[in-house]
Design a binder for these strands. Sequence first.
DNA 1: CAATGTATGTCAGAATCCTGACATGAGTCA
DNA 2: TGACTCATGTCAGGATTCTGACATACATTG
Lengths: 152, 152
Amino acid sequence: MSQNRVGVDLDKSLGYLLKEASSALRAAMEEVLRPLGMSVTHYSCLELLAQRPGLSNSELARGAFVTRQTMNVLLQALEREGYVTRPAEAPVGKVLPARLTPRGRRSLEKATVAVRSVEVGMLAGMTETEQSDAFRILRSMIHSLRDGNDGA
Amino acid sequence: MSQNRVGVDLDKSLGYLLKEASSALRAAMEEVLRPLGMSVTHYSCLELLAQRPGLSNSELARGAFVTRQTMNVLLQALEREGYVTRPAEAPVGKVLPARLTPRGRRSLEKATVAVRSVEVGMLAGMTETEQSDAFRILRSMIHSLRDGNDGA
DNA sequence: CAATGTATGTCAGAATCCTGACATGAGTCA
DNA sequence: TGACTCATGTCAGGATTCTGACATACATTG
């Protein structure tokens, strides 16, 4: 039980806490999306397309934090099932802009309601100040991690 | 560009930001662990064992946010390579307490240095107050998500 | 104009992780 | 004591995601 090691005490590690929170969020989202037969990546793709129609496969992949290969197989499935359309030929370059079909929009609406309940539940226990703090702090973490800070 | 939809605006979604931060953290950790031939789960397992020797397979799985089946194959590999030991028979029940070998401890030390640099980098851009806010807020999120708040 | 670098869509194979299932051991309760 | 519930370790199969690779299209640069 003695702490004679100069380690990363997990209870005091922001990284561990971040992973824990992210894991809990993912679990909560999977739980509400499962009845709709939708995975988190699936939902993310639809939500991205609703907000920014015409996004390409690669852009969707970056937005959903998966590789473009993974997003491609998902898009092909969504296309086959009629939730998404892509032109047969690229208007410019190789980029194929994707768009939601009416069916895709309908499907997304139910999912959005479910996901928003998770988001609201997460915000519920926080004051207004804490909420804006949360945004600022998470953005700060992302910035630090992206620019490869070495802490020197 | 018009927002005539009552959706979850991703730029203003705490959930999306959390996922983004977690993704960035994972990428940063993978980057510093790759030269050591170690994955994030791999490292998590060793770190957990260093801090709480004798943890069982299932407990390690929960601590590293994977299933016990996944942790089991990892533990078998670590055991085969001499980083971890488990008794052949359970002292009590079916629980096999795992422990680091000296080799495992040596391997972990390098990884800890690498991972700590990521953690420090993440904390560097934040004031003392922001750091404690970050802990409090993340814990609040975890709590809300676990208890399945429906936001009503 | 040619060469180079960067980004894209896509295919194929491999690695990772999970779901389902089973037997076993411990605790609870009547 | 016996039935029941729960947690554990482990095996097998399947789903998901990634890495590697290739051809192509655009932008930049000399």
